[in-house]
């Protein structure tokens, strides 16, 4: 289903969910939950947005049923830890590549995805100062290295 333009801001979270469908359904679930919450704040009044959000809600309810025996879904604290570990692992992979001077598309994506997942963690409550800093750094690094690679420059 096409994403209405009013909900453009949630497209990256929905894409991350799709990419994790098989690899890590818990990550996919919370990305969609975050997208749902954000989407409702953006626009849940116009018919096209309502239709889209109802469909997303149907998907979330089905996922929740399918994952009902998974503690990361049934217990908030476990889910929070799962997402945090995953985001950190992704951040560390990209950071290690960065420090080793290995610049490539995959590390840019890892930096960017870790920043998106740190946004997603806010479904559990306010982000810690450490997570806010990691998110800021990861987003900045992703943009900077992406631009360097695009312009054929070597990141410093």
């Amino acid at each position: 289903m096409a994403l209405p333009p009013q909900l453009k801001a949630i497209q990256h979270y929905l894409r991350t969910a799709q990419e994790h469908e098989k690899r890590d359904p818990v990550v996919a679930y919370y990305c969609r939950l975050y997208a749902m919450q954000t989407g409702m704040k953006l626009d849940s009044k116009t018919p096209e947005c309502r239709k889209f959000l109802v469909k997303l809600m149907d998907q979330l309810e089905t996922m929740k049923k399918d994952l009902s025996d998974n503690e990361s879904i049934t217990q908030e604290v476990v889910g929070n830890a799962h997402l945090e570990n995953y985001a950190l692992k992704m951040f560390l992979y990209a950071d290690n590549e960065d420090r080793a001077g290995q610049f490539h598309k995959n590390m840019v994506k890892s930096f960017y995805t870790s920043s998106l997942l740190l946004d997603v963690i806010s479904v559990f409550g306010e982000l810690s100062e450490e997570n806010i800093q990691h998110r800021k750094y990861a987003r900045w690094k992703a943009t900077y290295i992406h631009n360097c690679l695009k312009n054929g420059e070597t990141p410093q």
């Binding site: 919450q37 409702m40 849940s44 309502r50 959000l53 109802v54 809600m57 929740k64 049934t74």
Partner: peptide
């Protein structure tokens, strides 16, 4: 949008909010 249209829209919105909080409740 007339008043009927407005009430239908807000009822649907409420339903979505309720489904979201049910989803969150069980987390």
């Amino acid at each position: 949008m007339g008043s009927v249209g407005t009430s239908v829209a807000s009822a649907e919105q409420d339903e979505l909010s309720q489904r979201l909080s049910r989803l969150r409740d069980q987390i």
